[in-house]
């Protein structure tokens, strides 16, 4: 009961996050939504593990948490520096 309610709340939150990921005007909005979606996915995997009585799902959740952070930072590096020669960025920004 408890875990089902948490899972439903998580799914509703993920749906709203997905709306922002699809609508977000800038790339940063989409990235924020994807990052937040990933955090909620970690929680959902963990809760689903407890819901099915198999806490081994936590291994998957743990690795998903690691990949989620690394993925966000890696993609951001791509957006932060569009053109190093444009003069828009200073030396210290890199």
């Amino acid at each position: 009961m408890l875990f089902s309610v948490i899972a439903i709340a998580l799914l509703v939150a993920m749906l709203l996050t997905l709306v922002r990921a699809l609508a977000g005007p800038t790339a940063f909005d989409r990235l924020l939504a994807v990052n937040s979606f990933g955090t909620k996915t970690v929680l959902l995997i963990a809760v689903a593990g407890f819901l099915m009585g198999r806490p081994e799902f936590l291994d998957i959740a743990l690795s998903y948490a690691l990949i989620n952070f690394l993925g966000t930072v890696a993609v951001l590096k791509y957006f932060e520096l569009p053109d190093p020669d444009s003069g828009h960025y200073a030396e210290d920004d890199y």
Partner: peptide, 25 residues
């Protein structure tokens, strides 16, 4: 998982905000 989220979620937000500011948003 909790400890990792405690460190990475604020870091990711900081990186996101700084990248957005640097790109001129």
């Amino acid at each position: 998982i909790m400890g990792f989220t405690l460190f990475t979620a604020p870091t990711a937000s900081h990186v996101l905000a700084k990248a957005a500011l640097l790109s001129g948003l």
